[in-house]
């Protein structure tokens, strides 16, 4: 059983919602980025999403754009991404790791080589924001070979017909983008989302994690009844920004506060 599957099943049995955290690889620098990653599980992160920095993150709001900029300035590249996952796995073999980013750095790395290296390092899933089902067949050929889940995105603009296309080839879990906008933008309206998420649930048994615009423990609690997991990114990244001195406590206490409401 994959780490992703096991994590969602275990949480479901104990009636809990998964906390999925997002941090940018190499933010604020490589050393502290790894320190944060290693500490996230003990602070309550059930699944870890690592952003792969890219110069042109068209789906991200300012907070994550700036995080990517800091990481690139700190010298982070795709080889560091793989390397950091490998280091993380030395002490943690159970927390699923999802790499999230844009197609170009993976395309240039080479789809097959990337899938192989990521899998060897212990990556469980990929979310490639600008690789919709229409364009991900080439990559999926290799992620399938190396047992990496391709996590597809569903948005408020996804209708039933489109959903069928998205579900065909999806694995691991589904990432529900709760707003039409960029990361860290306005909050979603829970009541407006419910019928749409119910519609999705009627077509799939894959777990659903809800992200974009979840900022406080209160938001997390509200959204937790809708899905199987909650993704929190921008507000964590805001705390990561100031950890260059090695004090990562503010990041961990935020993650703890989010985790507490979900347990």
């Amino acid at each position: 059983m994959t780490r992703i599957k096991k994590t969602f099943e275990d949480l479901k049995q104990s009636g809990k919602t998964a906390l999925v955290t997002f941090t940018m690889l190499g933010d604020p620098d490589l050393k502290n980025s790894l320190k944060i990653l290693k500490s996230l599980p003990e602070s309550g992160a059930d699944i870890i999403e690592i952003g792969m920095p890219f110069t042109d993150p068209v789906a991200d709001g300012l907070t994550i754009q700036l995080a990517g900029g800091r990481a690139l300035n700190a010298g982070a590249n795709m080889h560091h991404t793989i390397d950091m996952v490998r280091k993380f796995r030395k002490t943690n073999d159970h927390t699923p790791i999802i790499l999230m980013g844009y197609a170009n750095p993976i395309f240039v790395y080479g789809y097959e080589k990337f899938a192989q290296d990521a899998s060897d390092a212990g990556v469980d899933g990929l979310i490639i924001v600008d690789l919709p089902p229409e364009e991900d067949a080439d990559l999926r050929e290799y992620t399938k070979k190396y047992n990496i889940d391709i996590i597809r995105l569903i948005t408020p603009t996804t209708d039933e017909k489109r959903l069928a296309k998205i579900l065909d080839g999806a694995s691991g879990f589904l990432y529900y983008v709760s707003i039409t906008g960029v990361t860290g933008a306005a909050k979603a309206d829970k009541n407006a989302l419910k019928p749409h998420i119910d519609m999705i649930k009627s077509h799939t048994t894959l777990p659903i994690a809800i992200g974009f615009g979840i900022k406080t423990p209160d938001d997390a609690l509200k959204m937790s009844s809708l899905g199987d997991g909650i993704v929190v990114g921008s507000v964590i990244v805001e705390k990561v920004k100031d950890t260059g001195n090695g004090n990562i406590e503010p990041v961990l206490s935020l993650v703890k506060s989010l985790s507490n409401v979900l347990k």
């Binding site: 197609a103 948005t155 996804t158 998205i166």
Partner: peptide
């Protein structure tokens, strides 16, 4: 019909934009 000129072109956009 998928917007490809050989290997080039295509529709590499976020899912939110796909229906549009």
């Amino acid at each position: 019909e998928r917007g490809h000129f050989g290997q080039y072109g295509g529709r590499y956009v976020a899912e939110t934009l796909m229906p549009l």
